[in-house]
Design a protein around this nucleic acid. Structure first.
Lengths: 224, 224, 224, 224
DNA sequence: GATGAATGAGGATTCATTCAT
DNA sequence: AATGAATGAATCCTCATTCAT
């Protein structure tokens, strides 16, 4: 666009500036996400959420009707995109050995950018909760079933007995989620940041290798 | 009962009867362990602990000076034996491929009987906590280092690059802990009890297979 | 419009169209009246008032400076006409037995159309309040005195001793006010609407009969 | 009891001193009754209740689980005895004209000692409430029906038409309750204490006269 | 004139803790 | 050792009110 054209243009900015309220709600969600990820629902005090945003507690109620709604909104916003990617990837019909690695890469990339999500989920599963998120509930069942099918269809069936499939799926789930959930402590203990781009890349590769190893044709292996 | 008979029956029972106070303290620890395992430190209210024991809240203070001490005692009592077994097993000098499976079996057996412990630990790691248990802190570092050595010493070194060793240890940790931590929700979703003796036995075998697979010599594998 | 015409048309229209703001204020008063009548000052939340009008709370402040003013305005608007009628009727010099019934009819007719007013008044008297309405205060004293005179002047003086006059006035007041104040519950309990035109008419007749009975010459009555 | 006997006696004191907690609960009820009578449920703040008893707010929760329970307890404790007396008196089979006055005397005596009760009831009826007290609800309906029968059975039936009976009952109710409910304001306006023993006695006589007048045989009366 | 957002004050309630019994 | 009672601190939430838009 020439300077002249610019002078004449009164068009709204490309990215229409969001209303102040919406931005505040977003910041509240950010703060709440971090807090709930760290301390869980019971431990995440609204006062702290507000403080992180630079508000007084009652102001939160201008954006969310109560604590539970805020929590639900955090989960919804955080989990939805992960579910979407996973769903898409999991439901894809055509697949090959390479695809498995693609699934890993895609989900790792996504979650690597929102490492709070796995912690939120782990808090939920720990509390045996999920009462707050039928969304999560349904999704888990659906995806778990799908993952099961994937295992079944893969060459893993030569290495694992069918009754081990669920355990294998669970194991992969734990390796995936656990990595992010433990990052905070890990840094605290070892000084290394598992959430750095480099670390996540390594874990992505490792996780891919892991899955590949577990799903590959059985090689000569000492009997059990 | 005749006096004579009485003389012969006053013998202390095989399990030396503990004083009432000690028994109460034990019951409190039991209740607290279950509660903290379920809801974490913030979510576990003393009132609920007391209720499960059939006491009023203030009575707890006859046995533990405050909530934090009770929590610490729960962790100590719960984690110590696990640490001991792990330490013992990890420090054993002589080892072979078979030993790895023995480590798995021993720890699974132990933890299978105290499934609250993994949950407690996961709560702790999630909160980035551990501030309450230097014990846990130190142990983790020590054990992690040892596990690293084990991996290094094993034939796994042909399958994994050295910088993947920590990730491998982490992965095994998550598979191990996650299984128990998720049992509650799993039952809720699938109706199956991961903590039943049979289920734990299956997981033990699966976990052994998993470790064996990951530690075995590299077979012909499609390049990455 | 010519100036001349203007001179002739400045006459207020039959129904002088009020400005929008005034109409809103009126609607706020209506909503507030109903709410305060039902729940009293403390129980009547501005948010609810606004909701009934289809506004957000802050909008109320464009019409009334604060809650107390709104409340005062409700009382003023509601009570003033009643006071006026009563005053007029009470101050009328010439009277007869028939007049008493006329007073009853006039006030009943008026209040029957604004049944919230008695409830507002009862809330006020219950709270020992009236601090909000010196207006009400003064009026009550004045009217009570006047009513007292009326009793004294009537043939009731043959039936009641002078020290009973105040009690008689009070009693009539309670019968009058209570009927409307209890209508809500009555409907809830009996399903009948004391505020229907027919019901009010019956009560008017009854109240007239009651007053007539109490004010009539003493008949042969069993001694006390 | 001789001194000797006294020495040997370990029997609890004649009037078994109530436990401290019970006395506190009673004092809380007293304070709450006064406060709720004055300001209604919404206006009666727990902080004020506690302050009147010399406690901090949370201490109330050692005696009542929440505000609503406290309110219910106040109503229950206050209304129950009145209901009992009324029920007894109303259900008595044998009656005469004199009995009506006896009913009046008995209830006036009772309520005269607990003048908060009518105010509580008026608050309830005003709010169209009663949702908190099915007790009150049921009682009102039962008693109203009974009162209706009494009117019907009395000589009042010559003076009032059957469709006026309910209005007559209502009127008596309002005269009765209103007297106490207005006492606070009355003192404020006139300086006279309607709750003094003397005043209550006068009102008792007046109310008796009133009822007698309304229930007496119709005398020569100017037609309506 | 209407409203989204913010907030001080306060209101019910919970919680860990203390203390006298 | 157990507990009823009391409480400071804190939690979630409501409410009246203000202000910029």
């Amino acid at each position: 666009m020439t300077l002249l054209a610019a002078l004449h243009t009164t068009a709204p900015p490309a990215a229409p500036r969001r209303r102040k309220g919406e931005r505040t709600a977003e910041r509240i969600l950010d703060a709440a996400e971090a807090l709930f990820a760290e301390r869980g629902y019971a431990g995440g005090k609204l006062r702290d959420v507000a403080a992180r945003v630079g508000l007084r507690t009652p102001s939160l109620y201008n954006h969310f009707p109560n604590k539970e709604s805020l929590y639900a909104a955090v989960l919804e916003r955080g989990i939805r995109p992960v579910l979407d990617v996973l769903t898409e990837v999991v439901e894809a019909r055509e697949r090959s050995d390479r695809d498995v690695r693609r699934v890993v890469e895609k989900t790792m990339a996504l979650v690597g950018r929102r490492p709070d999500i796995p912690r939120l989920i782990q808090h939920e599963t720990l509390s045996g909760g999920l009462h707050l998120t039928p969304m999560l509930r349904e999704w888990i069942q659906r995806t778990f079933a799908r993952a099961y099918e994937m295992v079944e269809a893969s060459s893993a069936s030569s290495r694992w007995t069918p009754d081990q499939f669920p355990l294998l799926v669970l194991a992969m789930y734990h390796v995936f989620v656990g990595y992010f959930a433990i990052a905070h402590v890990y840094r605290d203990l070892n000084g290394q940041d598992l959430l750095s781009e480099r670390a996540v890349a390594e874990q992505t590769r490792f996780f891919g290798d892991l899955v590949a190893t577990l799903f590959e044709e059985e090689s000569a292996r000492d009997g059990r």
